[in-house]
Design a protein around this nucleic acid. Sequence first.
DNA 1: TTAGCTGCAAAGCCTTTGCAATTTA
DNA 2: TAAATTGCAAAGGCTTTGCAGCTAA
Lengths: 165, 165
Amino acid sequence: MSDLSSLEVAVSPAEKFREYLATQNQRLTPERRNIVEEVFSSHEHFDADQLVHRLSSRKDNKRVSRSSVYRCLDAMVKAGLLRKVARTNDRDVYEHDYGYPQHDHMICTKTGKMIEFENEEILAILERVASEHGFRITGHRLEVYGICAEAAKSPRRRPRKLDLI
Amino acid sequence: MSDLSSLEVAVSPAEKFREYLATQNQRLTPERRNIVEEVFSSHEHFDADQLVHRLSSRKDNKRVSRSSVYRCLDAMVKAGLLRKVARTNDRDVYEHDYGYPQHDHMICTKTGKMIEFENEEILAILERVASEHGFRITGHRLEVYGICAEAAKSPRRRPRKLDLI
DNA sequence: TTAGCTGCAAAGCCTTTGCAATTTA
DNA sequence: TAAATTGCAAAGGCTTTGCAGCTAA
C-alpha cells in the first residue's frame, strides 16, 4: 500500500495522468508510467536529477532518459499532478499536488529541512487583501525561512566562506 | 529628489554600500557607484539583464560590464541593499531591501504585473505557527498568483502554443 | 501509415569564473 | 607596489530542443 492510502483520491495518479494526456492526444507510455509510479512512490520533495537517478538505480528495466524525465515533469505539472515548489541548488524542486492538500513550507536555512504546514487563516487574509486590489487568486507560494528546533540545539554553526583578510 | 524622499533612511544606498564594502576590504569603485545609483533611481523590480541594458543605454560613460553587474548584485544582496524576490523567465529578480519595508507580492500570471502589499496579521500567524514547531523565523517569501483587475477586464486570452493536430 | 515518443547529442540560457590589464590606496 | 577590480572570453550547470529511429492505434 502506498502513501496514498490515507488520502481521498478518486483515481490513481497514473490514471489521472492518462486522462490529462488523452485530452492532449498523448499517451501514457511505459516510460511515463514508470515516472509517475516512481514519483508517487514516496511523498518527498525531489528535483529532476534525483528522479533520474532513482529511475536508473532500479533493478528492473525502468530506466528513462533525462530528456523524457524533463518532458514528463512538465506534463505532470500541467496535468495537476505536481507543483514546482522552490529552487534549491539552482534546480527546480517538485512536490505532489494530486491527492495532497494545499500547504506551505518552513525551510531551515541550516539543515535544509522542510516542514509542511497548513493554515486557513492565512488563506482568508489573502483572499481579503486580494479582493481589495481586484485580484483573483489562483494559487500562492509561501516559504518561511529560519532555524529549525534541531539546528537550534546543535552548537555547530553552518559552514561559511571566510573572506580572507 | 529620488524615490527615497518619503522613506526613513539614515544614509544613501551608495553610502551604506560603501560601509559594507569597507568591512570586506573592498572599495566603492566608480562602476559600483554607477550600479547602485542606477538601481536606486527607481523602485522597480529588475533582473541582471535589464540592469545591464539600463547602464549601457546611458549617454554618460557609465556602462559597466555584465560580469561586474553580476558581481555587484551579489555584493548588494550581502550588504542588505537588495533582495532576490523571485525568478521570472528563468532570471533572478531583485528589489530594494534598504529603506523599504518588508512586504509581499501578488503576481498576475497574465500580465506579469506585481502588486506589493503588507500585512501584519500574516506575520503574527506565521510567528505562532513557527513557535508550535520550535522554528525561529528569519524571513519569508510569499507570492500570490492570480489575475489582476486589468487582465480580468480584457477579453484577450494569454497567447499559448497550439499543439497542431 | 501516420502521429506520437524516446534517447542522444547539441544547443540555449543565465550565471560564474579564470586571467591579464588596469586602477587605487 | 601590493591588493583590489574590471572586462572579456570561456566555462559551468540546468533545461530545452532537433532529429532519426521506434512504437502504437
